[in-house]
């Protein structure tokens, strides 16, 4: 039986299209990103090197979170092929890129996930799995926690709140309880204890506001999760909700898109802009296309400056600095303490 469409794309919502999302962002009337950089005396953002290869292996996910910037869900079918996964490993073998960052959807559901992990680890690269936690409990994934531990994969796991109320509101009914069970599985295998099995939790706001202080939230999470559930972890990242895809749909339904964008612009932090992840990341889509980041990938904003469009082309032509292609969603990474796949960017804020 085919799953019921639960995503924007599956339900035929106009916001399922990247062009419609860009149009909605443009209609807010907020300034162009590069204009704000110029106002602060900052040059347009350039990606001078690739330190992290972030590979989005597909849109399939066992969850349908309210804020998902990928519009992932059980009804999405886009999946990376073995050939494209091998091209990613070839790039890692040829260039000194230190980290392979695997994301989705639920990346573990892609048949190439384990091939990518094993290949990158053989090359001695750090591997990150952006994990929704509940995937660890699925039938057919019983050995996943052992696999991750065996290959010393860094697990970066979403947990927007240390309480059920906020987590379930954003990620679905009973997700908190399942996430706690999954975290216990990881901790039992040695994760989160300051050693080689690194466990990072990700907090993002349960609503249309910026995250609080990363350091303060980390202390709070640490105390609450350890005392209530015996769970330990290495670090907490705070990530701002990006006004695209399903979170944009959430804003649109409440008539709050312009207000949220204006808040992001008001909170622009030049120190955060100096450290945005696109300066050192390269994002690969499930079909091998290249982007500056996972958000640009979802908005179908390709690399500019004549940079290669696909991983095939990149392998043929080599790596070169490029100017990043910004749009109004970029204010999500530069607001307040900033936001990235590695959490806040300016922890002095």
């Amino acid at each position: 039986m085919r799953p019921q469409p639960v995503t924007l794309r599956g339900s035929g919502s106009p916001l399922g299209s990247a062009a419609c999302q860009l149009e909605v962002l443009g209609r807010t009337g907020v300034e162009a990103f590069d204009d704000v950089l110029a106002r602060y005396g900052l040059a347009p953002i350039e990606a001078a090197s690739i330190e992290v290869l972030q590979v989005n292996v597909g849109r399939l996910c066992n969850q349908t979170c309210v804020h998902c910037h990928v519009d992932a869900g059980p009804d999405r079918t886009e999946q990376m092929t073995r050939e494209t996964a091998d091209r990613c490993l070839e790039l890692l073998a040829r260039h000194p890129i230190g980290t392979l960052d695997l994301t989705g959807g639920a990346p573990e559901l892609n048949p190439q996930f384990r091939r990518l992990v094993e290949g990158a680890r053989r090359l001695g690269r750090r591997v990150i799995d952006r994990c929704n936690l509940t995937v660890l409990l699925l039938a057919g994934q019983a050995d996943l926690a052992d696999f991750l531990a065996r290959h010393e994969v860094e697990v970066v796991a979403s947990l927007p709140s240390f309480r059920a109320r906020g987590t379930d509101a954003q990620r679905g009914e009973r997700v908190f309880e399942k996430s706690i069970r999954a975290l216990r599985m990881l901790c039992e295998r040695g994760y989160g204890q300051g050693g080689r099995l690194r466990l990072v939790l990700v907090h993002n706001p349960v609503g249309m506001f910026l995250p609080g202080s990363q350091a303060s939230l980390e202390r709070d999470y640490r105390r609450e999760l350890e005392s209530r559930y015996g769970i330990v972890f290495d670090e907490l990242y705070t990530i701002t909700n990006m006004p695209i895809s399903r979170f944009l749909d959430f804003l649109e339904r409440r008539g709050q898109t312009a207000r949220y964008l204006e808040r992001l612009v008001r909170a622009f932090n030049p120190a955060a802009a100096a450290g945005v992840m696109c300066r050192t990341h390269l994002s690969v889509g499930w079909d091998g296309r290249l982007y500056d980041c996972d958000f640009n990938q979802m908005l179908e904003l390709p690399l500019t400056d004549g940079a290669p469009a696909t991983i095939e082309e990149l392998l043929a032509r080599g790596v070169a600095p490029r100017r990043v292609a910004p749009d109004r969603h970029c204010f999500g990474c530069t607001a307040g303490a900033g936001s990235s796949c590695g959490g806040a960017l300016d922890c002095a804020t």
Partner: peptide, 13 residues
């Protein structure tokens, strides 16, 4: 209200 939400508090708290 905003500050409580930002610091991770929920409606019940």
């Amino acid at each position: 209200t905003r500050k409580s939400l930002e610091h991770g508090a929920d409606l019940e708290q």
